[in-house]
Amino acid sequence: MAFGTLGSILVTGLAMGAVYALIGITYNLMFAASRVMSFTAGQLGMLGGVLGSLFALRLGLPLVPSFLLTLAGCAAVGVITEFIAVRPVLKNLDQHLYVLSTLAVALMIQQVTAIEWSTEPQAFPRLFGLGAGIYDERFWLPVLACALVVAFLEWMQRRTLIGRAFLAVAEDNFAARALGLPERNLRIASFALAGVIGALAGFAGGELMLAFVANGAQLNFYGFVPVALGGLGQNRGAVIGGLALGIFQQAANFLVGGIFASVAVFVVFIVVLLAAPQGLFGTSRMRRV
């Protein structure tokens, strides 16, 4: 089936929107456990594509081990981030030192990848070889990955003890610690889980975005938009915000094209934040003064 204009907007927009949503969830998971906005989220997405290509194409490993090694690698990066960029600044959250520390780690990841991997986009393997045209797997794999992640998080947070513990730490980490919850270990686990979800975004979107070091900065930027639109810590908001962003961005590409598409995206972003500063799905918190 040939690409029609509407079809192209929808399939590419939804696919990219799903990737943005997953990066938004990555931001949220790290934030919920630590109250830190870690700017390594986009780099985890980039690493998902690069490691996937490294294991599957360059090292020639089968698909399943490549996938699992990619997830494990990004989980390790998530944990390392917690140790070296988050934990040391937790005592001074009000000084926002985490902006510098997490950005520094993000830059290190980017530079090492550029030197050791390539600064040019590299091929990403065809995963299953399913579909063609607008039904090509490159378009629906990110959407499927996003749906599975949302379902898994819902199940974990509603049905499992560890999920409830995550929620408790997210709600009030001092109270959670007072109740005997291993807050530090839960925070490490959260960063590992965020690494896995970031990796999944890059791996599922690899056929569309390729294994490219510049994806890190791109995803950091566009992955933050659904978080701001949907409300900080709101995974459902991030999914809706991400999908809306993807479709709007692709529609803007068709209507105005080139650099103007990015301008259009950020005009809408600013307008939404002016109208609802807490995000579309966020809630304002009372603060005692």
Partner: peptide, 17 residues
Amino acid sequence: TAQIDATQPDMTPDMLR
């Protein structure tokens, strides 16, 4: 004539134009 963002994953919009 246009300047295209080299990282955009789908070039169909520009090709169609």
